[in-house]
C-alpha cells in the first residue's frame, strides 16, 4: 500500500502557504460579508456585528447562547451537520455504547461548577475553575471536519479557545514533552461507567507540539451555544486531524509529562488504536478500511483525506515518521 511519505511535505514550505491561503480566503470572505452587511443595512455601524452575524446557527439548537464569539479563519465551506445529528449521534461510552445513549442519559450530568486540575511539568500547577481556564481567552467559532474511527464524519461549528494559548498560561517546563488529559469518574451520573467497557476514567494524550498546534481547540460549545452534555460539557478537546476518540470530552485534569501518557482506547486494544491515531486513509484499522467515510447526511461514502484534510497544516508535525508504525 502506498503511503504519502512525510519527508516530501516539509513544514517550512507548506504551512506558510496554507496560512497565506487561509488568510486570503478569510479576507475575501470577510470583505464579502462586510459588503453585504453594508449594502443590506446601509451603514458602517453594522460592521461591528459582522462576526456575530456570520456565526453558525441551527433552528433546532436550544441551548444557552455563548457571548462574544468571533469567527476564526479556521473554517470550511462544507455543509454543516445539523445540530440534531451532532447532539443525537455520539460516541460517549460513559453514557452507554449506543450512539443514542449519550443524548438519552447525559441529562443528569452536572457540568457546573467545574474545575480542571493542572499537574506535572509546569510552573503554575493547581486547581483552576472553568472560568479561570476559559475567561482570559477570546471565544472563537471554528468549523472543523470530525472523522470518527468508525468511518463516519461530520462538519461541526465548534466554539472554543486554542488549547496552546491555555497551556501557555500554565508555563510548561522544558520537561513537558506530552500533555495528558483525564475526564471525571462519576458512575452515579455516567451510567456507562458502572460497567468495565473501558478502564475508567477515560484518558487521552498528545505530544506537546500537537497540543500547542494552532488547530488544536479546547471547545466549550457548538452552534454558538454552550456545549451540550452529550458532546462533552463543559470543556473538551477537538483535534480535527485525528480520529474522534482522541478528542477527550469533559476534561477534569491536564498533566504535563515527560513520558508518553497512556490513552484509553490504546489500553483497550493497542493493535487497533495507536497513540497518534491520525486520520490516514492508507492505514487501515485492523478490522476495517479507513479509505472511505460516510458523511452524516450523505448516502454514499466519500474518500477520506490524509490528516482529515488538514495535511497542509499538520503534516510537518510528523516529518520523517513512519505513519504506518506510528498509527
Amino acid at each position: 500500500m502506498l503511503i504519502k511519505r512525510p519527508d516530501d511535505v516539509q513544514p517550512s514550505d507548506i504551512t506558510p502557504r496554507s496560512i497565506f491561503r487561509d488568510r486570503r480566503r478569510f479576507m475575501r470572505d470577510s470583505a464579502g460579508i462586510a459588503t453585504a452587511a453594508m449594502l443590506g443595512a446601509g451603514g458602517l455601524s453594522l460592521l461591528g456585528t459582522r462576526a456575530a452575524r456570520a456565526l453558525a446557527t441551527d433552528k433546532d439548537a436550544k441551548g444557552q447562547k455563548l457571548e462574544g464569539v468571533v469567527e476564526s479563519i479556521y473554517r470550511t465551506d462544507e455543509e454543516l451537520t445539523p445540530y440534531s445529528d451532532i447532539t443525537g449521534y455520539n460516541n460517549f461510552y460513559e453514557f452507554g455504547t449506543d450512539k443514542r445513549d449519550p443524548a438519552r442519559y447525559a441529562g443528569g450530568f452536572t457540568p457546573r461548577p467545574w474545575t480542571v486540575k493542572v499537574l506535572g511539568e509546569c510552573e503554575k500547577p493547581g486547581e483552576y475553575g472553568y472560568e479561570d481556564v476559559v475567561k482570559p481567552h477570546r471565544l472563537e467559532e471554528r468549523i472543523y471536519r470530525l472523522r470518527c474511527v468508525e468511518a463516519w464524519s461530520m462538519v461541526i461549528p465548534w466554539v472554543g479557545v486554542p488549547l496552546g494559548d491555555v497551556l501557555a498560561r500554565f508555563a510548561p517546563t522544558s520537561k513537558a514533552k506530552y500533555v495528558a488529559f483525564r475526564t471525571v469518574f462519576r458512575p452515579e451520573e455516567m451510567r456507562g461507567q458502572s460497567r468495565p467497557i473501558l478502564d475508567w476514567p477515560y484518558v487521552e494524550g498528545l505530544r506537546i507540539d500537537e497540543a500547542m498546534h494552532p488547530l488544536t481547540l479546547l471547545a466549550v460549545g457548538l452552534y454558538g451555544e454552550v456545549m451540550p452534555n452529550q458532546n462533552g460539557a463543559p470543556i473538551r478537546l477537538v483535534v480535527p486531524w485525528k480520529y474522534g476518540f482522541k478528542s477527550i470530552k469533559s476534561i477534569a485534569a491536564i498533566e504535563f509529562t515527560e513520558e508518553q501518557p497512556p490513552t484509553s482506547w490504546n489500553l483497550a486494544a493497542s493493535r487497533e488504536y495507536g497513540f497518534y491515531s491520525n486520520v490516514n486513509p492508507d492505514v487501515s484499522h485492523p478490522r476495517w478500511s479507513q479509505r472511505r467515510e460516510r458523511r452524516i447526511g450523505e448516502l454514499f461514502k466519500r474518500e477520506t483525506l490524509m490528516f482529515n484534510g488538514y495535511a497542509d497544516q499538520v503534516a510537518g508535525l510528523y516529518a520523517g515518521m513512519d505513519l504506518k508504525a506510528n498509527y
Partner: peptide, 21 residues
C-alpha cells in the same frame, strides 16, 4: 450498494482483508 458503491475491487479487498467481512 451504499458502503461499497458497487465497487467490486472494494468488496474483494474487504472480503480478503477484513476478517469480520
Amino acid at each position: 450498494v451504499l458502503d461499497a458503491s458497487l465497487d467490486l475491487a472494494y468488496v474483494v479487498e474487504d472480503v480478503a482483508d477484513r476478517l469480520y467481512i
